[in-house]
Design a protein around this nucleic acid. Structure first.
Length: 418
RNA sequence: GCGGGUAUAGCUCAGGGGUUAGAGCGCCUGACUGUGGCUCAGGAGGCCGUGGGUUCAAUUCCCAUUACCCGCCCCA
């Protein structure tokens, strides 16, 4: 126990990896049905990709990035989020020419140097979706619907989308001013550090958990008072589409997101099972990001869903339905039966079944215990007597039914008793 | 980055300045011939997180460090 995994990282153990496989399969299956194709990007990017997009004042960029110089003197950053790298690839390979729409998905590790907590790791993983090229509110609604459907598909109950809009540049500027004006009294009582932070990004005030801040926030007129017509009608239309789709959502003015590239729509799905980290995923519209990366202006929407967080929620709600069980465990009743047992195992495996056997020459009692613990549906028992008779004993574990059958019928019988 | 808590067996946790540090679960072996689960008996497994200090004596007290947990910040 000398070494341990680096702080904020974790090993997924063989006994737990089925959870990952299950979520990944659900994600790939569901998104494929909506026409999303998987994009795979490098684990690291030029640091500029993130500096240009996430916003230099955002916490992610200002204090959480894993950035280093490589031996060629390049500034490299392990990706702290998925959207900017995906859009870097999209621009580089011209994946979304003007006038077209592109749907992409990805499964990636993300790295953020922050203090670890429940549901917050330095290396985490996320499922991502990007719907690129469509200015339509139907695009926003599709991403939100797909996200909620994913949580339903993996068994997370009560997945409710929290929806908000941040408007566009001009209206947001007016709204920021309004925040500063209305919260001036409260801010004056705060440490200068916090004042500066809010000065730089007044929206930050809105998701504060401080009760006094909450009080101050109540004085601020809602952003909807400042929205331009286009933003307002988008917001309304999205809600209409989600309602039509039967997707549960709530309006949540406190959702502002930590990355600066969002425009108009922002949303999260939250859970109370995540401790201080309430959000299971976060996403929104980013109409300026692609242009910032040197592409042509392309309206887009996307989402990033935390895999570890989904697993926590499912763990705490007993959301896992049985792992995989072997079909058969082959028991050698006599030492000399080993080769025959291996032949049986080989036959079952080549027919696509999971078949196990002991390779340490343990006692039959021990083998039976192993068979039981493995969760196998049946034990196949083979010794000298059976070999002489060309038979095998087949025992259904969980009951004590046992019959002797011709060895030629093993496969059929094993399948029958599953 | 800031504040607080915890660290003892594979897991969940007791304990205590002084011979061989415990429990439950798990694991291994056995209970007449080649049969699991239940029961019973036996057994393996711990530098008591790491480094330093106080002390005749530290796993126990103190300090530091590392990791995890909780809250803040923030977020997946």
């Amino acid at each position: 126990m000398r070494y341990q995994a680096p702080r904020g990282t974790e090993d997924v153990l063989p006994t737990d990896s089925y959870k990952w496989l299950k979520l990944e399969a659900a994600f790939r299956d569901l998104t494929a049905r909506y026409g999303y194709q998987e994009l795979r990007t490098p684990t690291f990017e030029d640091t500029d990709v993130f500096l240009r997009t996430a916003g230099e004042t955002s916490d992610v960029v200002s204090k959480e990035m894993y950035t280093f110089m490589d031996k060629g003197g390049r500034s490299i950053t392990l990706k702290p989020e998925g959207t900017a790298p995906a859009m870097r690839a999209l621009v580089e390979h011209n994946l979304c020419p003007p006038g077209t729409v592109t749907r992409m998905s990805y499964i990636i590790p993300i790295f953020r140097y922050d203090r670890p907590q429940k549901g917050r790791l330095r290396e985490a993983h996320q499922f991502g979706l990007e719907l690129v090229g469509s200015p339509s509110p139907a695009a926003d609604a599709e991403i939100i619907e797909l996200t909620v459907r994913f949580y339903e598909a993996i068994g997370i109950k009560d997945a409710v989308a929290k929806l908000n809009t941040l408007g566009k540049d001009e209206c947001r500027a007016k709204f920021r001013e309004a925040i500063l004006t209305h919260a001036a009294g409260f801010l004056a009582t705060q440490p200068t550090e916090y004042q500066e932070k809010v000065q730089k990004n007044p929206l930050r005030l809105l998701d504060s958990k401080d009760p006094e801040a909450q009080q101050a926030i109540r004085e601020i007129p809602p952003i909807t008072n400042y929205l331009e017509d286009e933003s307002r009608s988008r917001f309304d239309k999205i809600q209409e589409l989600l309602t039509d789709a039967g997707v549960q959502f709530e309006l949540a003015p406190d959702i502002v997101r930590g990355l600066d590239y969002y425009t108009d729509t922002v949303f999260e799905v939250q859970s109370t099972k995540l401790g201080a980290q309430s959000s299971l995923c976060g996403g929104g519209r980013y109409d300026n990001l692609i242009k910032d990366l040197g592409g042509s202006a392309t309206p887009s929407v996307g989402v990033g869903m935390g895999i570890e967080r989904a697993i926590i929620v499912l763990d705490e709600s007993d959301g896992w339905t049985g792992g995989t069980r072997p079909h058969a465990f082959v028991v050698q009743a006599t030492e000399s039966a080993f080769k025959s047992c291996q032949a049986v195992v080989r036959e079952l495996r080549s027919a696509g079944l999971t078949a196990l056997l002991d390779i340490d020459g343990k006692s039959m009692k021990s083998q039976m215990r192993q068979a039981d613990k493995s969760g196998a549906a049946v034990a196949l028992i083979l010794g000298d007597d059976e070999i002489r008779r060309n038979t095998v004993q087949i025992k259904r574990l969980g009951s004590s039914e046992q019959v002797e059958i011709p060895i030629a019928n093993v496969l059929d019988k094993v399948l029958e008793l599953q």
